[in-house]
Design a binder for these strands. Structure first.
Lengths: 177, 177
DNA sequence: CCTCCCATGTAACAGGTTACATGATTAT
DNA sequence: ATAATCATGTAACCTGTTACATGGGAGG
């Protein structure tokens, strides 16, 4: 089993989801395309880590709602205890920033400004999510035994990182002008 | 050509390097294994983006020193102007943090503390690099036309991110206790 | 004696992206 | 009209990791 598999289990332990829903929730955790998710869900089912039931819908296509089994919950709990692999960030922007000195002022400023705008937008999105969670769940989000806890602290982390990215962009823009 | 190819070109535009040296410099930019780097260098050579010369060494294995060609420099400059792909961060820790509420207090604290230590170490390493650059190059590091500029601002960015990661870990540890 | 550093390469495999495929409903 | 949302799946391809392969010199 790979990281993506465990990421899916960690979503399903909070609540049953369709494959489609899983893809969107994964965005904040371990982004993946549906072409990777659906075959993996079948594999998880074969391993008896998840089960699903067909849900018929009118006006929308039918869907499969996946739930975690007891076995699934156990393997997830065991995996969480093991030390995680070091993070890997692949960010084309960093390469372009590294080679910034090659370009003219205009192109350089443009590169940084696009980045700045992107993270200003992301910051707003992430703040929205946090505010929604606080409104819906109240103090529960800060309770370490609540299913909301992990999601909440991760979004708080994202916000801090967004702010730093913005600060850095503004600092670099100052140097470029 | 893929991102790794351009990352290599952006290193070589600063100074000629061996494949081995490239791997180490790539660590801060676009980490890659030597098994990916060496075949790519041959491809870059076939495309006439780079050239190399054999350097015989005594006491050490011989090496190939790769340099950027004019063509290589041109394609790199053009690529830098295009808008970069959005960053992808794959971080197993985030999945485990998301599923933190499943574990007992001990395991949870352990997970966060390991992360904290890791980033305290990385912060020190990155600060060392920045101080070295400042000592070697002085104000040149802040000159947007200097080959040092990109590398310098990227390490400054890393330091800010390290600090935020540390702050976040300490905040979460407070919640867990 | 053993491990780390230097230095380069190939082959098999796992993980991830793009493209192909289908199709109804709702909003602009 | 046209795009976006919901919903699932497969196949071909590209990218990245692990393992195989070699070998001298330095330092603990």
């Amino acid at each position: 089993m790979n990281s993506l598999g465990y990421a899916i289990l960690s979503l399903l332990v909070r609540k049953p989801c369709s494959g489609y829903e899983i893809q969107m929730l994964l965005d904040a955790l371990w982004p993946a395309k549906h072409s990777q998710i659906y075959p993996l869900l079948n594999k998880l089912k074969e391993n008896h880590y998840v089960t699903f039931e067909q849900v018929k819908q009118t006006g929308k296509p039918n869907k499969k709602i996946y739930s975690l089994t007891e076995t699934g919950k156990e393997v997830l709990s065991e995996w969480v205890k093991e030390t995680p692999d070091p993070p890997v960030q692949r960010d084309e922007f960093l390469i372009k920033a590294y080679a910034l000195w090659l370009t003219n002022e205009e192109d350089g400023i443009h590169l940084i400004q696009d980045r700045l705008k992107r993270y200003q937008y992301l910051l707003m999105e992430h703040q929205k999510t946090v505010q929604e969670m606080e409104k819906t769940f109240g103090d529960e989000v800060l309770n370490k035994t609540s299913p909301q806890f992990g999601r909440y602290v991760l979004f708080k982390r994202r916000i801090q990182m967004d702010v730093e990215e913005i600060n850095w962009c503004e600092w670099v823009l100052g140097l470029l002008r």
